[in-house]
Amino acid sequence: MTEIAYYPGCVSKATGREYDISTRSVARVLGIELIELDDWSCCGATHVPNETLAVGLAARNLTQSELPVMTTCSICYSNLRNAIRRLEDNGLRARVNSLLERRYKSTRVMHVVEMLSESLANRELPIKLSCLKVSPYYGCLLTRPGNGIDSPEHPRVLEDMVKMLGAEPLESPLKMLCCGGPIFMPREDAALESTYHILLSAKRAGADAIMVVCPLCHLMLDAKQGAIERRYGVDLGMPVLYITQLAGIALGLGPEELALEMNSISPLPLLERVYQSMTRD
């Protein structure tokens, strides 16, 4: 069994619970043992303008395990990858290490997208998703500023994932427009405007669902979708699935193991359609 250190991030305990639950369920099926990072702390998200302090906060998490570290949040991922780059500087590394209980040496950080790409390749999936058109939404920090996972300008990794899961990927021109999540509390109008355009673009393209890889994107596109519909006077009703929820469906997991009932826009009708299309075949 492969062992991976899991950094859930602060959101996993509340607004992103279905991401945490579905990640753990999918890992179990894939034979991956996720070991929650001991005493993990906040990576600083996008709210620590002092860059040295931000590196220190992220670095602490990189010293909590010898195993490769997997995170599901694109903000945590970008911050941890950035810390690794900055800690190549000997002066900064010595300074940060003088503050930490355990010294930072080096480590591998991956996004759950990478974990799934590796472990789903060439795997026979019991549930066929071929009746679903899925618009993959990258958001900003999965690939930026240059996290090594894919091109920050023309990424394909999520389209490839949708295909690997047996669904049809629909490319949206706004797939990398920021959802506005980081400023939604102090600047709600600006944030909702971005989210609205992303949802509308997927709807116009004829998507059955949007697939996301970050809990903040999910909060904006799913939990705030009702508020957006009221504000703009539109009917969207667009299910927004975490990559782990979609992968879990294809792997044959049920709604409870994937916490599908926690999504604001219910994905259960889609699930029904998937099961019906299979009985027809």
């Binding site: 992103g16 619970r17 220190g56 503050l99």
Partner: peptide
């Protein structure tokens, strides 16, 4: 209504370390 509000986020044990990071790099 979706069961996604947690009143117990927990407190990190290594708060001395966090405090040192803020004090020295802040």
């Amino acid at each position: 209504s979706r069961g996604k509000v947690s009143l117990n986020a927990g407190v990190v044990k290594g708060m001395d370390e966090i405090e040192r990071i803020f004090r020295e790099l802040g």
